[in-house]
Amino acid sequence: WIARINAAVRAYGLNYSTFINGLKKAGIELDRKILADMAVRDPQAFEQVVNKVKEALQV
Results as ranks from 00 to 15, higher is better:
Ala26Ile: 07
Ala8Met: 03
Gly27Lys: 10
Val9Asn: 00
Arg4Pro: 02
Leu23Tyr: 06
Ala45Asn: 11
Ile34Leu: 13
Arg41Gln: 14
Ala36His: 08
Gln48Lys: 11
Asp37Ala: 05
Ile28His: 04
Ala11Phe: 05
Asn6Lys: 14
Gln48Cys: 13
Ile34Cys: 15
Ala39Arg: 02
Tyr12Pro: 00
Val9Gln: 00
Asp37Gly: 09
Ser17Ile: 14
Ala36Pro: 05
Ala45Val: 06
Arg10Thr: 13
Leu23Asp: 00
Glu29Ala: 14
Tyr16Arg: 01
Asp37Trp: 09
Ile34Ala: 10
Gln58Ala: 14
Asn21Glu: 10
Ala56Pro: 02
Val53Gln: 00
Gly13Phe: 03
Ala8Ile: 03
Gln58Cys: 13
Asp42Leu: 14
Val53Met: 04
Leu14Met: 08
Lys25Ile: 14
Gly22Asn: 03
Leu57Thr: 09
Val53Cys: 13
Leu30Met: 15
Asp42Tyr: 06
Val53Gly: 02
Tyr16Thr: 03
Ala3Gln: 14
Lys54Tyr: 04
Met38Gly: 02
Lys24Ser: 08
Arg41Cys: 15
Val53Ile: 05
Val9Trp: 00
Asn6Ser: 14
Asp31Cys: 13
Asp37Pro: 02
Arg4Val: 15
Ala36Trp: 14
Arg32Asp: 15
Val59Glu: 10
Asp31Ser: 13
Ala26His: 03
Phe19Cys: 01
Ile34Asn: 11
Asp31Asn: 12
Tyr16Cys: 05
Lys54Asn: 05
Ile20Ala: 09
Val9Gly: 01
Ile5Tyr: 02
Ile5Gln: 00
Ala45Thr: 10
Lys52Arg: 14
Val9Ser: 02
Ile2Cys: 06
Asn51Arg: 09
Gly22Glu: 02
Ser17Ala: 08
Trp1Val: 15
Tyr12Met: 03
Pro43Gln: 07
Ala56Arg: 08
Val59Cys: 13
Pro43Ile: 10
Val50Arg: 01
Ser17Tyr: 15
Val9Pro: 00
Gly27Asn: 12
Glu55His: 06
Leu23Gly: 02
Leu14Gly: 01
Arg41Trp: 07
Lys25Thr: 09
Glu47His: 05
Ser17Gln: 10
Asp42Asn: 12
Asp31Trp: 08
Lys52His: 07
Ile2Asp: 01
Val53Lys: 00
Glu47Lys: 11
Phe19Ala: 01
Leu57Trp: 06
Asn15Leu: 04
Glu55Asn: 09
Met38Thr: 04
Gln48Thr: 05
Lys33Trp: 09
Val40Arg: 07
Ile2Ala: 02
Phe46Tyr: 01
Leu57Lys: 04
Val59Ser: 14
Val59Gln: 15
Ala11Asp: 12
Val49Ala: 03
Ala36Met: 09
Ala8Gln: 04
Gln58Met: 06
Leu14Trp: 04
Ala36Ile: 09
Leu14Tyr: 04
Asp42Phe: 10
Thr18Leu: 07
Gly22Phe: 03
Ala26Met: 05
Ile2Pro: 13
Lys24Tyr: 11
Asn21Val: 13
Arg4Ser: 09
Val50Gln: 01
Tyr16Trp: 02
Ala45Met: 12
Ala11Gly: 12
Trp1Ile: 15
Leu57Tyr: 07
Gln48Asp: 07
Ser17Lys: 14
Ile28Glu: 05
Ile2Arg: 13
Gly27Met: 10
Gln44Glu: 12
Ile34Phe: 11
Lys25Asp: 06
Ile34Ser: 09
Gly27Arg: 06
Arg10Ser: 14
Asn15Pro: 04
Ala11Arg: 12
Thr18Ser: 13
Met38His: 03
Ala36Cys: 08
Ala11Asn: 12
Ile34Arg: 11
Ile5Pro: 00
Leu35Asn: 01
Asp31Met: 15
Tyr12Leu: 05
